[in-house]
Simulated scan of single mutants.
Amino acid sequence: MGHADGLCHVYLHQDAGPEKAVRVVVDSKIDYPSACNAVETLLIHRSLLRTLWTEVASALLNAGVQLICDEEALSAIPQSIARANPNSITSSDEQSYRTEHLDLKLSVKTVDSLDAAIHHINTHSSHHTDTIVTESEADGSKFCRGVDSAGTFVNASTRFADGFRYGSGQR
């Protein structure tokens, strides 16, 4: 068995619940960062930058993840967090969203809507596994219908694509 390309995404929808969002994003990145179904890009709805993004960024940084952020996500990280993690937060460029990091690195991009997230994923992903964190059943369904990937999930870690049982730590 060889490695399959895995440029996987998690999209934090505007109504994503904080606890669920943190669990899904962190597990999607740190469970096995070099796996083909580990998240490589986090898409975050603009309305979450001053709220949920702070929690998610803190949890990722505490887990040892380097954040490679667009200008908006970068500027939304509180200065106290940025000062405490000077080597773990950097600016992104367009190549960041085409890179399978295979490490504890995560590209972060701000989007305006579910449609923008779907467009970004369909343009940049490897069509392996992508997930949305949302409380909206209709928008979760729209995401799964709109994203052209082998696995699309709602409120589940991208690592679930490999038979991972969420929360068990066992394979």
Rank of each mutant, 00 (worst) to 15 (best):
R23D: 15
V24S: 06
V25I: 10
D27Q: 15
D27R: 06
K29A: 13
K29E: 15
K29D: 15
K29W: 14
I30N: 09
I30K: 14
I30P: 10
Y32P: 00
P33A: 13
S34N: 12
A35L: 13
N37R: 15
N37S: 13
A38R: 09
V39D: 15
V39W: 07
T41G: 12
L42W: 08
L43V: 00
I44M: 07
I44F: 03
H45E: 13
R46A: 12
S47D: 09
S47G: 04
S47C: 09
S47T: 12
S47Q: 05
L48M: 01
L49S: 06
R50N: 15
R50C: 09
L52Q: 11
W53H: 03
E55C: 07
S58W: 01
A59P: 02
L61D: 03
A63G: 05
V65W: 02
V65Y: 02
D70N: 10
D70F: 06
D70C: 10
D70M: 07
E71I: 06
A73M: 03
L74V: 00
L74T: 00
S75A: 13
S75P: 00
S75Y: 03
A76D: 05
I77H: 01
I77V: 05
I77M: 01
P78K: 03
P78L: 05
S80R: 12
S80F: 13
S80W: 09
I81D: 07
A82T: 06
A82Y: 12
R83D: 14
A84M: 10
A84D: 10
N85V: 00
P86A: 01
N87G: 12
N87M: 10
N87F: 07
N87L: 10
N87K: 11
S88I: 00
T90P: 00
S91N: 11
S91L: 14
S92I: 02
S92D: 04
S92C: 06
D93L: 02
D93T: 05
E94F: 02
Q95M: 13
Q95A: 14
Q95K: 06
Q95S: 14
S96A: 15
S96M: 06
S96K: 07
R98T: 08
T99V: 08
T99R: 12
T99W: 09
E100R: 00
L102M: 09
L102G: 12
D103M: 00
D103Q: 05
K105T: 04
L106E: 13
S107N: 08
S107T: 03
V108T: 03
K109Q: 15
T110D: 09
S113N: 01
S113Y: 02
L114Y: 08
L114F: 09
L114M: 09
D115W: 05
D115F: 09
D115A: 15
A116F: 05
A117K: 06
A117G: 08
I118C: 08
I118L: 07
I118R: 05
H119T: 14
H120D: 12
N122F: 06
H128R: 08
H128Q: 12
T129S: 15
T129W: 10
D130M: 02
T131G: 10
I132G: 04
V133K: 05
T134A: 03
T134I: 06
T134E: 04
E135L: 10
E135G: 09
S136W: 03
S136N: 09
E137Q: 14
S141P: 00
K142M: 03
F143D: 10
F143E: 09
